[in-house]
């Protein structure tokens, strides 16, 4: 199962890289950037989520997406299975998944955590 998810992650990541290249959003996530101006957010992929970043990028990546997109949309665009994200923080404060993102936001994504 983990293997299958890994494969899914990689294919999603390639998809996402292609999207990064064109600085455009895929059609299924909404209209393209030609119609709606895009915004750039800094995503910090904490813990093991860093493997969803493009190779060699580390855990901080810049993602461009159409205006009006939410934390949940961002997670889908990157291609992380939802159950592996426990919460997202925008500019250092935990926010709901339907929080709308603005140009220049920093979004930190965390996996489920245990222990302490």
């Amino acid at each position: 199962m983990a293997q299958a998810e890994r494969e899914r992650g990689i294919s999603q990541m390639e998809y996402y890289q292609r999207e990064m290249f064109y600085r455009n959003a895929p059609m299924e996530h909404g209209p393209s950037a030609c119609e709606i101006p895009s915004c750039g957010v800094m995503v910090v992929l904490h813990g093991s989520l860093e493997r969803y970043a493009p190779p060699g990028e580390g855990r901080r990546v810049i993602v461009h997406l159409p205006r009006g997109r939410t934390v949940a949309d961002l997670i889908d665009i990157i291609g992380i299975p939802r159950q592996y994200v426990s919460f997202g923080a925008v500019n250092g404060v935990r926010r709901e998944m339907n929080q709308e993102l603005k140009d220049g936001d920093e979004v930190a994504l965390f996996t489920p955590l245990s222990g302490g």
Binding site: E5, A89, A108, F110, T111, L113, G116
Partner: peptide, 29 residues
Amino acid sequence: MREDCLTDTNLWARTDGTPLLVEASNSAG
């Protein structure tokens, strides 16, 4: 080990360990 331990639910311990909780806790106030 394959299916339950070495998964994204636990591997934060390897990539980071408990210091990861600093930012998580700060974000959650």
